[in-house]
Amino acid sequence: MPGPDAIAMQASALRPIAGGRLALSALGLGTAALAGLYTPVSAHDAEETLAQAWEAGLRYFDTAPFYGYTRSERRVGAFLAERPRDAFVLGTKVGRLMRPDPGVAPLDDGWANPLPFRPVFDYSRDAILRSVEDSLQRLGLARIDMLLVHDIGRMTHGDRHDRHWEALTRGGGFRALEELRAEGRVAAIGLGVNESAVARDAMGEVHLDCTLLAGRHTLLEQGALGFLDQCAKAGTAIIVGGPFNSGLLAGQAKFDYADAPPSALSRAAALRAACAEFDVPLEAAALQFPLAHPAVAAVLCGMRSAEQVRQNVAWFERAIPTALWDALRERGLVDPQSPCPVGSAA
């Protein structure tokens, strides 16, 4: 069992971002899964998941028009509309407009039962303003707290990236975000992406309050460490999404939304074996590790049932001995320049 040097985290602990305009619970609820990512989730199960997250003290909720082709925003909004508005932080995203389309079919873009709306990429000023209004209607709320540009970057767009980047820059997309923040219609602006390079580029165009970075600073990989250090100096908060790397660190053979390559499987197995020596679930270490970096304000985890919420909160709050983090460093399983939770050797 963990020794006396173990230090426990609290999932409900509030951490300020955006100059104190917002405070995120250290563990946030990502709601793509509630919209039926790969597997359908009933309205009842979605409601119970949200209710359990609220009971556990989670007060940061992340959604997007793309999730379930608007299903996530509708479910999350219906739940949060019954809670005190100043008691939670809600983030959603822009970059796709959702157009009615009766041809939408099950498993389009991986959504088990998407609603009949087709996403169309558009990062221009007018599209961003339209997207915000559409989201407010679906959510049934008067304001959005955090507004993120969704999936900009070459990982998503390939050769089309330059055209979409021009919409954000010359086309006024970033300017629209700044105006929404200046007018108080949103408290924080940022990016929601799977790659750090485009977030670094964006920081040269506009002051980002935050970046939701999925899968790039986890127990499995720390390749974005230099970018996180830059964010810490600039006052740009990082929210780490995908702490399990698409499920690989939670016992699934998936990585970056695809079958995991042998190298990733081997590294995950080594991490799990090391954790087992200290009687620590790999999932607990994976959830807690990112928060050691000073730029990281919260870890965002997708959950699709009340039981998953209970389990993730238990992992997040499990005391982990310093000796585990030391061992991961000594075995080369963690970048030696990466901070580990309190008490780790330098």
Rank of each mutant, 00 (worst) to 15 (best):
P2R: 00
M9A: 10
I17K: 09
A18Q: 15
G19H: 14
L24A: 11
A26E: 14
P40N: 04
V41A: 01
S42T: 12
S42E: 03
E47M: 08
A53L: 08
E55Y: 01
A56F: 02
A56M: 15
G57T: 07
G57D: 01
L58W: 00
R59V: 10
F61N: 08
D62K: 01
D62A: 09
P65I: 04
G68K: 04
T70D: 06
R74P: 07
A78V: 05
R83D: 11
R85N: 06
F88Y: 11
G91H: 03
D101E: 08
D101H: 01
P106T: 01
D108H: 13
W111R: 00
L115N: 02
F117L: 13
V120S: 12
V120K: 12
Y123L: 15
Y123F: 10
D126R: 00
I128M: 03
L129F: 07
L129I: 14
V132S: 04
V132P: 07
V132W: 02
D134Q: 12
D134S: 07
S135C: 12
Q137L: 04
A142Y: 00
G153K: 06
G158K: 03
D159W: 10
H161N: 15
R163Q: 13
L168I: 05
T169W: 03
G171P: 08
G171C: 11
G173V: 03
E179M: 13
L180G: 05
A182C: 10
I189K: 10
G190N: 02
E195F: 05
S196R: 09
A197Y: 09
A202P: 10
G204D: 14
L208E: 02
D209G: 05
D209L: 12
D209Q: 09
L212A: 04
L220Q: 02
G223Q: 11
G223N: 14
L228F: 10
L228H: 00
D229R: 03
G235V: 09
I239P: 07
A250N: 12
G251L: 12
G251Y: 02
Q252L: 15
A253W: 13
P261E: 05
S266H: 13
A270P: 00
L271Y: 05
A273V: 15
A284R: 04
F289I: 05
F289G: 01
L291G: 05
L291P: 03
P294T: 00
A297Y: 06
A297G: 12
V299Y: 02
C301V: 15
C301Q: 15
C301T: 15
M303C: 06
M303F: 02
M303Q: 09
A306Q: 05
A306L: 11
Q311P: 08
Q311R: 14
V313S: 02
W315L: 11
F316T: 13
E317K: 07
R318K: 05
R318Q: 12
A319C: 07
I320Y: 03
A327Q: 09
E330Y: 03
E330N: 06
L333D: 05
D335T: 06
P336Y: 00
V342C: 08
